[in-house]
Amino acid sequence: MAKKVVEVSSLVKQYGDLRAVDGISFELYEGEVFAFLGPNGAGKTTTVEILECIRPLTSGSAKVFGYDVTKREDAKEIKKRIGVLPQDFSALDKLSVKENIDLIGGMYEKKLDTMEVIKLLDVEDKANERFENLSGGLKQRVGVAAALVNDPQLVFLDEPTTGLDPKARREVWSVMENLKKLGKTVFLTSHYMEEAQVLADRIAIINKGKIAVIGSSQDLISEYGGLKVLVVRKGGKEMAKTLQDRFGGTTLNHNGDVFVKADDVNEMWRVLSTLTEMNLTKEIEIQTPTIEDVFLKVVGGRITEEGELT
């Protein structure tokens, strides 16, 4: 069993009347990528900032590396050992990439060589560029570089790709995959389903301050994702009718595509052999459920591109 890096138990954060974090418990294990997946206002940033020791908690307990986030002396130890990319990261506009990373690095007793970190993030050619002149994606990469400068064991990335275009998002993803290779424990928050599914070893779906489900994406999908679906493109009315007789959950859309739901592998084979009997010549496709289906099932809604729950 891997070592526990973060241990949160019955954590509550109250802002006046609003209970932003409502009694959540979870752990992070050494070397894993753990994701908080949830819409805006779910309580992601609040939780992360409590763990970073910059926000007091209302009740419950939170430990990082065994240190208690509420104790002053412990907080010092935690701060030395964590790296953070805050939500909406920004740096001093008129300083260069290198100067900004030097600035953050200078705050620690022990730090990596700035150029080494810059190379790691593949921003060498921008090392002397002023921060204000960088694109959004590059700014985020600088933010990740700054988060690594103290060679932390645990890295928090709060919505690292929000607002980036798809290309820049993928660049940041590849950076995060490198973090995993470096053996860092990563706490990622996101409202992008795909991001959590691609990057995280374990996902906690969080909504209204509560964790709905927690587990690896495979486990969550097989438990909550629902059925696999076989699609026959342009199968037509006739075929839909035949399949409907044998397999209850068959539907037809306005393009003439036929959808057949399959409980398990055996069912899927039966559908396929039926289609073989019918001398099928059309294109077929098998759709596997995703985290989005899990989310829909456990939260009862979807998250828009902007992060709002619908």
Partner: peptide, 13 residues
């Protein structure tokens, strides 16, 4: 506003 102070407060500063 730009979170620069917050970013620094997460370090031992």
């Amino acid at each position: 506003r730009r979170g620069i102070i917050k970013r620094l407060s997460i370090t031992p500063l």
